[in-house]
Design a protein around this nucleic acid. Structure first.
Lengths: 149, 149
DNA sequence: CACAGCAGTTGCACAATACACATTGATTGC
DNA sequence: GCAATCAATGTGTATTGTGCAACTGCTGTG
C-alpha cells in the first residue's frame, strides 16, 4: 500500500498547503492579480469571459478582480481588436514591470528551497511538474498556454 | 530566462489552482477535515494547540474545524494521556474508514491523470515532490511527518 | 422600432479565516 | 485551601474570496 500514486496524492495534499498558505503580502500583487496578469501576459488581451473560461471562476469574481486590476493600473480596457462586443484587458507597461518583479521575488524564494538541488534534479522536477499539469489540464479539458519555451 | 526555477515557479502556480479548485464535494469529507484527519491518523491524537502548530492556522479556526469533525463523528475528544490540561482528538474507527475511502477516491482520480506514466516516472515524481515539500518544510521550520515508509 | 441574446455588473449569501475577547480548568504562593 | 494566574480552548465579529441570481447595457434582427 505504498504506490507512487499514493505518495503523490499525499505530497500534493501538503504542497497545496505550502503553495496557498504563504501568500501573505509578499509583493504588491495579490494572488489573483498575479495569476490573471501572468495569463494575460502570455496570451495577450483577454475578456472577462475568456478569463472565466481559462480559470473556471465565476464571471462575477473575474469582473471584480479585473476591476481591481484596472484601478491599480495593472491593465487597461481595450475594445476587442477583432471587432467583438466584449472589452479586453491588456497588460500595461507598469503591470508588466510589477509582474516581472513579483515573479523574480518568487523565483528568489524558490531558489532558497532548491538550494541543495543539482541542475539535473531541478530540470527533472520542472519537466515532471509540467507534464503533471498538462495531464491534469488535458483531463479537465482546460489547457493552459506555456510561455514560448 | 528559462531556468528550471522559473519553470518550477510557473508550474507550481498552476498546480496550486488545480489542487485547490476541484475540491468540490468529491467525497463526504471537506478539505479541512481530510487534511486534519490525515495528520491525526499519522501522528496519533493531537490537541488544538498542536494542530495550530502543525498547520499554522489560528486556534479559533482549528477549534471550529475540530468541533465540526467531532459532530460528524470523525474524531472523539480524549484527555491528554500525558496528564496535560489540553484535550486531544483521536480518530474514530468511522473516521479512519472514511479517511481511507476519501484517499482511495483521490488516488483513483490521480491514476487517471497518471495514465500514460511509466512506473519510473511516477516514482521519480513522487521522490522529487517529497523532497520539494521537505525542503519547504525545513525552510519554514515546520516539518511534517510522513507515513511510515 | 421592439425584442432576443449575450457580456458584464451588482446585490446578496456563504465559507474559511484571523483577531480580540471570554471561558474554563489546573497550578501555585501564601 | 483559596485567590491569582496562566495555559488551552471557545465565541463574537470582521474580512476576503467566491458563487448564484437578478439586473444593465449593448448589438444585431425581424
Amino acid at each position: 500500500m505504498d504506490t507512487a500514486a499514493e505518495r503523490i496524492e499525499f505530497e500534493t495534499l501538503l504542497l497545496a498547503r505550502h503553495l496557498t498558505r504563504p501568500r501573505r503580502g509578499d509583493g504588491d500583487l495579490d494572488a489573483s492579480a498575479y495569476l490573471l496578469l501572468s495569463r494575460i501576459d502570455i496570451d495577450g488581451p483577454l475578456s472577462v469571459g475568456e478569463l472565466r473560461e481559462a480559470f473556471g471562476l465565476d464571471t462575477s469574481t473575474l469582473s471584480r478582480q479585473t476591476t481591481a486590476m484596472l484601478k491599480s493600473g495593472l491593465v487597461h480596457r481595450i475594445p476587442d481588436p477583432a471587432g467583438g462586443l466584449a472589452r479586453k484587458f491588456r497588460i500595461t507597461a507598469d503591470g508588466k514591470r510589477r509582474l516581472d518583479a513579483e515573479r523574480a521575488g518568487n523565483v528568489r524564494g524558490l531558489e532558497t528551497v532548491l538550494e541543495g538541488w543539482t541542475t539535473d534534479d531541478r530540470d527533472a522536477f520542472a519537466n515532471l511538474l509540467e507534464r503533471f499539469n498538462l495531464d491534469i489540464e488535458r483531463r479537465a479539458g482546460r489547457p493552459w498556454p506555456r510561455p514560448e519555451s
